[in-house]
């Protein structure tokens, strides 16, 4: 049953992806990307990754859609028809895809309990948080406690990206709008 739900959701995800590739109106692309994020969140819920699903739904469909729309307002939503034939990109994509599919042949199937990923580290986390009466949500325990260094690094990356955006966009526009706008800024 769970394989069926998973399969249907993944097929819808693939269909939305095809629509994103073919759509040339960027406004449509952004909305489709929002649809894609919600579908991805549903897939993640089926895969028992509830924390990740929550993040994907709020970040992917919420914040990034808003930022993309703000950018479209600033740059225009028209995409020029491609100047080159898509033969070379298609070839590169097909070869890469074939190599990756070849690589999946040896991987364990869906939802198998004894696959290698479950042998190392994760059982130790589950055991330790049960033994020491840590917070029941193991994801929070691993995020903030067992792997606190990782999260410190990630937080620093977010901080750095935020500073970068402010540095790029807070300054004044230079060229054509220059003198008239400068007065209104101050």
């Amino acid at each position: 049953m769970i394989e069926l739900i998973e399969g249907v959701l993944l097929t819808m995800l693939a269909a939305v992806t095809i629509a994103i590739v073919r759509q040339h109106n960027l406004f449509g692309v952004v909305i489709l990307a929002g649809v894609y994020s919600f579908l991805m969140a549903s897939v993640l819920i089926v895969l028992d990754a509830v924390d990740v699903a929550m993040t994907e739904a709020s970040v992917g469909a919420g914040i990034s859609t808003v930022i993309l729309l703000a950018t479209l307002y600033l740059t225009g939503s028209r995409e020029d028809p491609p100047a080159h034939t898509p033969a070379l990109p298609l070839f590169v994509a097909t070869v890469t895809g074939a190599a990756l599919i070849w690589g999946t042949f040896q991987l364990p199937g869906f939802g198998v309990a004894h696959s290698p990923i479950h042998d190392h580290v994760a059982p130790a986390y589950l055991e330790a948080s049960t033994k020491h009466e840590m917070p029941p949500n193991v994801v929070t325990a691993v995020l903030a406690d067992f792997r606190g260094y990782d999260t410190l690094g990630e937080t620093t990356v977010i901080f750095t990206a935020g500073i970068g955006v402010m540095l790029l966009l807070r300054g004044r526009r230079k060229r054509q709008h220059g003198s008239a706008k400068e007065a209104s800024d101050t």
């Binding site: 703000a70 307002y73 937080t155 977010i158 901080f159 955006v165 402010m166």
Partner: peptide
């Protein structure tokens, strides 16, 4: 960090559109 960064990014983009 996360809430203020997201808001600061939004403010930066929104301010830019008004100029």
């Amino acid at each position: 960090t996360v809430s203020s960064t997201m808001l600061a990014i939004f403010y930066a983009f929104a301010d830019r559109s008004r100029r």
